[in-house]
Design a binder for these strands. Structure first.
Lengths: 110, 110
DNA sequence: TTAATATATTCATATATTCGAAAATGAGAG
DNA sequence: CTCTCATTTTCGAATATATGAATATATTAA
């Protein structure tokens, strides 16, 4: 595989989770193990169709997988390593935000 | 901080690295420790102005930091944890691609 | 000190991509 | 068949990206 092409796929994969709603869905599924579209929509307080769109993107990239039970389709996280990676990113972001905040406070105190 | 707002910031932060060129820059800096804009542009075979734009996005989000030495400005990774997180994401992606590939091969063999 | 050069950044613009809402379609239950 | 739930498609608005030109910053030479 060509090197540039690998970065392109890698970026596309990361882009799936570089979205606030998909991140929220991911962490929700991380907590609750298994949820159907309607449950997610209710918890997040957004439209079912919109949840479905996001889940289809996540499923296409194997971030979630599905199980049908009667009328409902239940979604699960395929590989918990993605939660781990996103959690690390969040930690770094929060560290950075704290630095920015203390910088701001320094300015105010001088 | 409001929950939804946190996901928004988190997603924005992830978006910085959900780009093929910025990923390539990050891994380059992970390997070489320190590089200036022109070196990066030469290695990646793209324009200096474009590299500079990407670096400014990365710097704004504290993913890289800079050090001036004469005419040159050298860039470094601020926190190696972001490389770790991206590497984990890449591993998951490659695992997924392998599954898709073996699925494809199964179809061809039957 | 001024001029010339090297390096990096910013700006304006054109193109491309992404996002979310609504509508249309598909699949299973009763 | 008909209803419900989920998916796919379509479309306009908002964002992101790449490029060339202009500008800024620092070093060296005259």
């Amino acid at each position: 595989m060509e090197e540039k092409q690998l970065y392109k796929y890698h970026a596309e994969f990361c882009k799936v989770l570089a979205n606030p709603k998909r991140l929220e869905i991911m962490f929700l599924l991380g907590d609750k193990e298994e949820l159907c579209v309607e449950e997610i929509a209710e918890i997040m307080n957004i439209r079912v169709a919109n949840v479905s769109q996001h889940l289809s993107i996540m499923r296409k990239n194997r971030i979630v997988n599905t199980r049908r039970e009667g009328k409902n389709i239940f979604y699960r996280i395929t590989n918990p390593k993605v939660i781990e990676a996103c959690t690390t990113m969040r930690e770094v972001m929060i560290e950075n935000m704290k630095k920015d905040l203390s910088l701001l406070q320094d300015i105010q105190n001088n």
